[in-house]
Design a protein around this nucleic acid. Structure first.
Lengths: 231, 231
DNA sequence: CCTACCGATCGGTAGG
DNA sequence: CCTACCGATCGGTAGG
């Protein structure tokens, strides 16, 4: 990936005569570039060079640059929305437990869809496509804020700080993972372990803080180690 | 600021015959645009329109678009570095107290230099100027991580989580403030109150977590309400 | 000669 | 999937 080298295309082993670019490959390489250089800072020429083909050839696979953005942010928003639906659909959980699940699910989704979520979090709203993405993202934020409010009302979460502020800070911390988490080299589809450990750490820090000493036993939610998103 | 309206230039009251654009005004308007649309997503034509003058006239005040970026990220990095120097220069503080000050200082600097810090946090490294900014930013991150390690070694901060991870999460939470904090309308130079309240909230959440009940008296550091940066 | 700009256009490159 | 291009716009500069 270093110098002027075009990326290997088919992940597996045997490579066909033609490079075999499909939309998924173009999308993956494009999103990586968008995240490295910024969406506006990435030209279709950059993408062509990275793919090892001409600019025009890209348009055989995708109709426009912005469609690539749309696909990626759609993936991220679908995953986040589904995760929240899962949490909301659990019967018999307290509001605090649902919030804990939401934090863990957010981390898991972020790690499993890292490039897409990273791109989503950097959208500016410069075009209708970006504005639509921001609208869906605000809806996710609203649902997360509501879960914090519910947990405060229920009594499990501190009420000396504004719930909206708490929601912004906690999920701001979660979202900041995109700044440094790296994708695991894609042996296959197993990214679960790292994500779970990270989710634990984030959850611990968010709920218990970084001050030493006050550790609590009721840290683990009802569903113990099974991931709330994929489960 | 809504439609095609050019921004008011001289903040005060009496306006001179000529618009009186100086470099500072150009910089302020430019950084606001960069943060709204992205640096690469903002053309010098956009900036000219917002300033109410021609593109060419901008180059009477600034040598290039990138110089505007350089000035802004320099302001942010200088402020962050100075704040860390201040904290490091305090004698007789425990490592935990220094860390608390660092968290509060970071919030204060972020609020007081909000546009500059926001821009800094979005730099990609596409040019030598951006790469230099990233290098300075990494140095700041290293110093913050070292403060967390010291606090862990000292015993005041939990040691069941990786100090580097804790540092990233806590200052990721701090940095996420740029996503939603709005500058106060600039009556004069008084932005202290809001920043202090926000610093309190962030510090409380970071050190004590959001779980109800375990509130601690030793929350306030040695220097109680005087801001560590400006003091 | 200075300042604070303007209308027009430069050489290159963007997405398509 | 390429060569050959387009309308437009990019950051920056010309003379006045």
């Amino acid at each position: 990936m270093a110098d002027g080298e075009a990326v290997g295309v088919v992940g597996g082993g045997a490579r066909r005569g033609r490079p075999g670019h499909d939309q998924e490959t173009v999308l993956r390489v494009a999103v990586d570039l968008f995240n490295r250089q910024g969406y506006d800072g990435t030209s279709m020429g950059d993408l062509a060079r990275e793919l090892g083909l001409t600019k025009s050839a890209i348009y055989h696979h995708v109709p426009s640059k912005e469609h690539l953005l749309e696909l990626a942010v759609g993936e991220a928003l679908d995953a986040l929305t589904t995760a929240l639906d899962d949490v909301a659909g659990r019967p018999g959980l307290t509001a605090e437990e649902r919030l804990r699940h939401a934090v863990r699910s957010s981390v898991t989704v972020l790690v499993e869809h890292l490039p897409a979520v990273t791109l989503l979090l950097r959208v500016h709203g410069n075009t209708p496509v970006e504005q639509a993405a921001l609208a869906r993202r605000r809806e996710v934020d609203r649902r997360l804020a509501a879960m914090v409010r519910d947990a405060v009302d229920e009594g499990g979460v501190r009420d000396d700080l504004d719930p909206l502020l708490v929601s912004r800070l906690v999920f701001g911390m979660v979202n900041s993972l995109t700044e440094w988490v790296r994708r695991d080299r894609g042996t296959s589809g197993s990214s679960g372990t790292d994500a779970a450990a990270l989710a634990d750490a984030v959850s611990t820090l968010a709920f218990d803080g970084l001050t030493r000493g006050v550790r609590r036993a009721e840290q683990t939610p009802t569903g113990p180690t099974t991931g709330p998103t994929t489960g």
